[in-house]
Nucleic acid binder design. Structure first.
Lengths: 161, 161
DNA sequence: GCAATTGGTGGATAATAGCAACTAATTTTT
DNA sequence: AAAAATTAGTTGCTATTATCCACCAATTGC
């Protein structure tokens, strides 16, 4: 059972949000709040919930055995120390393990564990579905359109080709 | 002077982010991080920096004198307690003041101060410009396209017509 | 071989978020 | 008109993140 319908709060009349009406960053930031919360709910209990990065990390480690923390950090837009703590957490949960790279002994290589791989399977189902569901009121073609544009933005930001 | 170019970190090869590649929520969440940081930089020192909500609050109070905290809370997707603290802060900075509503003495009405109004003027310049600049590598028509779609999403989320 | 760089760690601080409990004022019920 | 339920806002607490900075060890460049 879910929380009681969360009472439809006050119905604000016709409000105009000023210049933000035409400010892309405003929409990104606002929608981020809503979609992140919704995602957290769906991931409840899956020790990959809360905060950005765990999901991406899990999938990347699963796909690229031996990948280095700093590579992931860069892709999830965190600094190395934040990344380190994130890995501590996930390692603590038994999702992955680190080894020191034979090539460069200050670097690490990350490897998925069984538990991690199992979780990755679930994640691959839940996460895209959550996104589709959440944005289901946007026609599919428009969703894809937005995604194609934002994908370029993301890749540009993190410097992917 | 800006920070030294932030050294172009490791250049990850051709990496594929698995199912996230086609997950809208992933892009929203990631881009949110980048755009929010960039915005914070540009607002540095303006006591409206950091965190979502202050900007929207300022503009709304400026545009709708007497507007109620809970209305704003709803539009910025925060709960009442978070909203309260946000107002404390802004009131502390002399940007707005609260009065108890004559109509309903448990409710409040928010009013802009001179300092607040002055800041709103700056904000109206900086914020949309930041967004345009940040996304400047996306052609204008595409930006508008995305915005039109995300606007509908936002309005839907907060229940605006 | 020495200096500069890089990968990762650890600490401290500050900021948010999310709950839950609480007061006071209103509205609804009966 | 009294009791019950709802609503607006406040407060306290906890947990989680985010930064920033200094630091160590290993590596790379001269």
């Amino acid at each position: 059972m879910r929380k009681p319908p969360a009472k439809p709060p006050i119905i604000p009349e016709d409000i105009n949000i000023d210049v933000l009406e035409d400010t892309l960053s405003f929409y990104i930031r606002s929608i981020n709040l809503a979609v992140s919360r919704d995602l957290d709910e769906r991931l409840e209990g899956l020790d990959v919930a809360k905060g950005t990065g765990k999901i991406t990390t899990l999938l990347l480690v699963d796909d690229y055995p031996g990948i280095r923390p700093s590579v992931i950090a860069h892709l999830i837009l965190k600094d190395r120390s934040a990344m380190g703590r994130l890995i501590d957490q996930m390692e603590g949960h038994g999702l992955l393990r680190r080894e020191i790279s034979p090539d460069d002994s200050r670097a690490q290589e990350l490897y998925i564990t069984e538990a991690g791989a199992a979780l990755a399977v679930k994640i691959r189902e839940i996460v895209p579905k959550q996104s589709r569901d959440f944005f289901s009121f946007i026609p599919e073609d428009e969703q894809r359109l937005v995604m194609d544009i934002l994908r370029r933005a993301y890749r540009r930001i993190v410097g992917l080709p």
